[in-house]
Amino acid sequence: MEPTNVYAYKLVSRKEYFSPGHRACQGCAEALAVRLVGKALGRDTIAASATGCMEVVSTPLPFTNWNVPWIHVAFENAAAVASGAEAGMKALMRKGRLPKKKITFLAMAGDGGTSDIGIQALSGALERGHDFIYVCYDNEAYMNTGIQRSSSTPFGASTTTSPAGKVVPGQVTWKKNMPEIAAAHDIPYVATACPSYPIDLVQKVKKAARIKGPAYIHILSVCPTGWRLPPELSIKAGRLAVETGIFPLYEVEDGRYKFTVEVGILRPVSDYLKIQGRFRHLDEGMTGKIQKRVKEEYERLKKKVKMTQGD
């Protein structure tokens, strides 16, 4: 986290751009993340949302929770729609048909809309270099349709299409590393964030808005409904994901990796797993396998930090 001399509350606007009254579940950390992203970006934002929980809970015709201009077209194309809005505005301002103004273009989607069905449109938009921020709200499964697995569902998790069965113990693949895929596009800014660390999240979103060109922010969004945990543990679960090293908070700015929240000694992954019903069936062997993988990935990330900050 960047050092700061002001009280935390002053870093976050009191204004709401994602207003109260939406229909998200109790304890939905994704709704909290959306709210914080809105506060970080402010009024001069145009948002393009993918189909998913956030679109469903916030725009039941004729109501809306959006105090910024917002558009939803389909599931897999948030990055493309945002590309069009950005290009259209650029042309209109250049041709003098609209007064010049700094507008932030935000594309947002869940993990399914990002790492599965939307990865092509996202890759295209990152490669073309549009000046926009893509935020993935990762709740690690297709929650809107009823907790089906995605490529972002972690190893071992039980979902409705990767149920913990007698033969197959839930999800048997490792979580797709979307931030790394985004970083491989050599874009100016990539970061991970979690609403359990609100100041870190807000600072990253603000930085992404300042930087010209595409930025990608991957936000771990705890879903009490899908993860089978009490809503009051949402924030705690997010903190445990970071403290165990399962979801490290870092940023990649112009290719340089940096931890933004230093954890020190990692807590055992079981601290994180045991509070969630989706991991209830895991035995010691499976937990051990996860612990080993988390440690390896964390070490790899540390090496990247060391390597890229050194020069």
Partner: peptide
């Protein structure tokens, strides 16, 4: 004087056009 957006698929071509038209530009 126009933006030419060489998209990665026709699905994105039409999606980008949706974004263009939504901000009031001619697509």
């Amino acid at each position: 004087d126009a933006e030419f957006i060489p998209v990665e698929s026709e699905h994105s071509a039409m999606s980008v056009c949706a974004g263009i038209a939504a901000v009031g530009a001619r697509a």
